[in-house]
Amino acid sequence: MERQSLSRLVRGEFHKLFTTRLWLWLLLASLALTALYASLLIAFSDGSGTWTPPLDTAPGQQTLFAVAAGGTGTLAAVLAAIGVTGEFRHRTATVTFLATPHRGRVVTAKLLAYASVGAAFAVLGLGVVTAIALPWLSAKGIGLSLTAHGIPGTALGVLASVTLFSLIGAGLGALLRDQVATVVALLVYRFVAEPILTGVPALEAFSRYLPGPSSSALTQITLTTQEFLQPWAGGLLLTGYGLTFALLGTVWSVRRDIT
């Protein structure tokens, strides 16, 4: 008698994801957002008084590639959150937990599946930046090499950041269970609360530990004046947020009666 292997459960999660279209819309939206960010950055890079470093320098090119994290991270987290909370919204949790009575394993499988999806979003986002930057910068007479100017490091940072944001989205979904609440919480936090928190000088000592600045720590790039930590510290923090949400969610929320 075999127990369901974790890889089978992860494949099950992928199967669920790819039998609806949501992933496609969110992927297209995040790639469009990434393309928009990259295009704006290149288009306005040679104006006077621009706030980004010049694109013929290493910091400038790293900043350009780091926009992929901003473009895909939040929506990848939203996809993960919807994937987890959808089980409760559509009451498919009954079927899921009938098939796999060990709920912690279901949560683990979802974390792994959506972290992988986040990594894929990041890679595709970096691809979009590359596809825009290579011809455009060359037209401007700026040389761009994907293996120089610390770009591989930035790309790794983007990959880690988006992967871990997906982990946070899935973990938060497990904790809150409510789909609308989770998605709204993610979006409001990322686009409203965090910019305010990181803008308050008095909070600067604390705000660097928030998810957004932790993501900046991974790429070592920020478009604001926000201080950030070392990459490893940012990565640990993001992992910690995701796993803490998931663990609390498993113990408090997912284990609750499914009626």
């Binding site: 199967h15 609806t20 959808g86 559509h90 009938l98």
Partner: peptide
């Protein structure tokens, strides 16, 4: 079970 849910966008076979 009663009140078992299905994802509305998924086909029966899926």
């Amino acid at each position: 079970l009663e009140a078992t849910g299905f994802h509305p966008a998924r086909t029966g076979r899926d």
